[in-house]
Design a binder for these strands. Structure first.
Lengths: 194, 194
DNA sequence: CGTCTATTTGAATGTACTCAAAAGCGGTGG
DNA sequence: CCACCGCTTTTGAGTACATTCAAATAGACG
């Protein structure tokens, strides 16, 4: 159960077996079913969850009532609303399991306890946030500078595995276009190959 | 020179005068002229800069050679390419002073030294990154879910001061539209008010 | 097999872009 | 102080990209 998360943290810094044990004992194991919501708008996010197995999406509902998908998260990633978690303020986001998923979670008090006992874990979390930040930056650049077709091709190249697991209309929502238009983009690409 | 940055860090956590002194002595004061580049593509970003006075923009040049403005930064913000800075890898970004600016900077070794001497500063930087992350998240949501006109109105509401200092074509680049179209949006809004 | 949902298709429309040209504005030197 | 230069902003016509709405088709699951 802990092997993948322990690999993850050992890639971020070097930890003794005792420290890893402290860490593991603070984690809570959680199973979620398909379609289950881990977080909804207005709630305060009380977890940072490492994904052992599964696939989730983080989305936002805009004024017009349409869903904007911000992120897909799969194995070996963390999922949370970091701002809501740390500042204990209501979230604007929804987090939904798209498959049955297995998570290892920390709540705020356990995270605090961890950082008190093993301060080097600060580094693990800083690296986690930085990765999120870089990913978001690249995503913003792509969203702003590319056409729908380019965004789709990039997505397929960068996340081929996610593309296989996720319904097309979710991908469209992630790429910032309508499902109908994504369908047309795909047709155009398919025709071009012939 | 240090009052505003010291206020900033004291809002993030509580520090003794001695700790603040250590911090201030590690900072390097830097003046940059209008149009000067602090960072260009391919360079490794070697600073995290607190802006005492001035106004900068961070941008990216896409395949078609057009500039995508990611951020404007003004007084009481930090500017850097965080990913490049921490992982010592070449940046994709440019950072340019749009006005004569006054900065307080940390390079990687001084930041390390600071964190070694006053570990609570981890918190200051974690909060800084989190703020960046939240800002980017909101920006992504707005970029994806709103029309050009809505993005412009939001921008004017959120950053009225920046709007006064920055040329319109930079604002257009930030909002992800052409300068011509921004001009048309503005005309439409002006007519509507009459 | 039937039902429910996801995907595809098409026509009409809207939003934003390109290119070219004109107008406005600020600073500088005569 | 005015005239001119360079740069920013505005305008307009034509076009491309993406959306909406409605309907048909395909797929998944009990």
């Amino acid at each position: 159960m802990f092997t993948s998360i322990n690999d993850y943290v050992n890639r971020c810094g070097s930890f003794s077996p005792e420290e890893i044990l402290i860490f593991n004992e603070l984690l809570k194991h959680r199973l979620v079913k398909k379609k289950q919501l881990l977080l909804r708008e207005g709630e305060i996010c009380d977890f940072e969850a490492y994904i052992v197995k599964g696939c989730l999406r983080t989305y936002y509902i805009d004024e017009n009532g349409s869903e904007v998908t911000l992120q897909f998260s799969v194995e070996d990633w963390w999922v949370s609303d970091i701002g809501s978690f740390h500042e204990r303020k209501p979230s604007l986001l929804y987090i939904e399991a798209m498959e049955e998923s297995e998570l290892l979670t920390l709540n705020p008090s356990r995270k605090e306890e961890l950082l008190a006992k093993v301060p080097q874990f600060e580094r693990v979390f800083r690296l986690m946030i930085q990765r999120h930040l870089s990913a978001l930056e690249h995503r913003l650049i792509r969203t702003m500078a590319q056409t729908a077709e380019e965004r789709y091709l990039d997505f397929m190249e960068q996340y081929p595995k996610i593309a296989l697991r996720v319904h097309q209309h979710y991908i469209a929502a992630y790429l910032g276009m309508t499902p109908e238009f994504l369908s047309k983009v795909r047709r155009r690409l398919a025709n071009r190959k012939d």
